[in-house]
Every structure is written in structure tokens, then in C-alpha cells.
Computed example of a mutant assay.
Amino acid sequence: MLPFRFSDFAAASVHVFTALGAVCGLMAALAAFDGAWERMFIWLGVALVIDAIDGTFARLFQVEQRLPRFSGERLDLVVDYVTYVFVPVLALLQAKYLTGTGGLIIGALILLSSLYHFSDLASKGDDYSFVGFPAIWNVVAFYVFTLSPPGWVTYTALLLCVALTFVPIHWVHPVRVKRWRTLTLAVTAAWSIAAVAIIATGFPPPAWAAIVLSASAVYFVWLTIDLSFRPDVEHSV
């Protein structure tokens, strides 16, 4: 009988914690089928939080060393594909933001381009940035639900994001960016507050929250362009 070691149990628990993101994806999909969009985004938000903190736990409990047979990175990619890509596409179709044959084609392009991104071994730069659009379709879908733009704007924006998957510009991580770090963290905090307010009050959102989300998007796009085309700048910490 193998001896019980708390360290191994703790390491395994981190994998279980990561895997709970898939359960969140299931609950979000069920909410999408019910048309309960706020509930769906709550579950996607919980999955986002899990994804944001499980790496810290993995390093704390030395998961890679304790359980070398199991890949936390591979597990994370599987869960992320469900919650970042598949469920958001399902939601856009269920909510009729994507309709007809054209909508199905765009949905398929999102799924396929995201598979390319997730399987690309060069999808992350040495500075922890993402090379090409980082398949954050959960965030894109949230913007579509929040702003409810005309159909042609939605379709154009989605196709642009698909195309940017294959363009090797660096999309910065909001926490690991050194340049403008204080401002970036402030914008991220403001975005989070606005997102919580929108989910709490429901769609359509309060005007101020929609403005905060729009301004945040402009800031992060500007920051990505600034850092992508200024290789002399130190990007990460």
C-alpha cells in the first residue's frame, strides 16, 4: 500500500480545482439553453476566476513535481476551450446574435481558429503575452450582449478577431504588463466592477457600465498596439 502524503493530495486537489472549470462550462451551457444570460455569465465568470488563480496554487503545491504524469497545462487548455470558446459561441447562436448560415459559418470559424491558437506552441511570447488574438471569446460575447451592436458590426468584429488570431502581434496580459502597470490594474479593476454591475442589474446594462467597458476595450487595444510595435520596451515583470 502506497503511503499517504498530504503534499500529493494537495497537488491532486489543484487539478480537481482546475477541472471544476468544466463543470462551470456545463452550468453555463444549461443557462444558455434557458436563455438565462446573466446566470450564464456568472458561471463563465467563476470559470474565469478559477483559471486566474489555479496557476498560483499549482506553483504553491509544486504540482508539476508531485504529479509529473498529469499535465495541468493540458487540462487547463481543455477547460479553457469549453469556457472561453465553445459556450460563448453557443450563447451567440442561442441569443440570435449569430443567425442563419452566415452565423453558423462564423461560429465554425471561431471554433476552428481557436483550436489553432490552443494548439500553437508559439502562442505565448517570452514576455508572457499572447501571440495572436488570445481566443477570449467569453469576453467578446460579453461585449456583444452588453452593447448589442447592429448585426453587421457584430459580424465584422467577430471576423476581425478570427483574422487577428493569425496575426503575430502581442496581446498583453493585464497583470504581467510592466509598462503602464498601475493604470492597467486600475482599468482592470474598473472593468471588473462594471462587469459585476451589469450581471447584477441584467441586460441591457446601465449606461455608465457600458461606457466603462467600451473605454477599457479601447485602452487594452491601444496598449497591445503600443507594446507590439515597441520592442525596446520591457513588457513583463
Score class of each variant (00 low, 15 high):
His15Ser: 03
Val144Gly: 04
Arg74Thr: 12
Val172Gly: 05
Val140Cys: 02
Tyr81Cys: 01
Phe4Cys: 09
Trp43Ala: 00
Val131Pro: 00
His15Cys: 03
Val172Arg: 14
Ala12His: 07
Pro206Asn: 06
Leu93Pro: 05
Thr154Asn: 07
Val172Pro: 10
Val131Phe: 00
Asp34Phe: 02
Ala190Asp: 05
Ser236Met: 12
Val237Pro: 15
Glu73Ile: 11
Gly125Cys: 03
Leu158Met: 06
Val167Ser: 00
Ala215Trp: 08
Tyr155Cys: 04
Val16Trp: 07
Pro168Leu: 00
Ile136Tyr: 13
Ser113Ala: 07
Ala47Ser: 13
Leu77Lys: 13
Ala195Phe: 12
Ala197Gly: 14
Thr156Asn: 06
Ala58Leu: 03
Trp171Gly: 00
Thr188Glu: 14
Ser114Tyr: 00
Thr156Leu: 14
Phe9Trp: 12
Ile198Lys: 10
Tyr143Gly: 13
Ala95His: 13
Ala47Pro: 08
Leu26Gln: 01
Arg59Tyr: 04
Trp180Phe: 15
Ala31Asn: 02
Gly132Leu: 00
Tyr128Phe: 15
Gly55Arg: 01
Val79Tyr: 01
Leu92Ala: 03
Thr201Cys: 14
His117Val: 06
Val139Phe: 10
Met1Cys: 13
Thr99Gln: 14
Gly102Ser: 12
Thr182Trp: 11
Leu92Ile: 03
Leu111Phe: 10
Phe17His: 01
Pro150Ile: 04
Phe57Met: 09
Ala186Val: 07
Gly151Asp: 14
Tyr97Trp: 15
Ile198Asp: 08
Ser216Asn: 10
Leu2Met: 14
Ala22Thr: 07
Asp127Met: 06
Phe6Ala: 15
Trp180Arg: 13
Ile193Arg: 08
Phe220Cys: 03
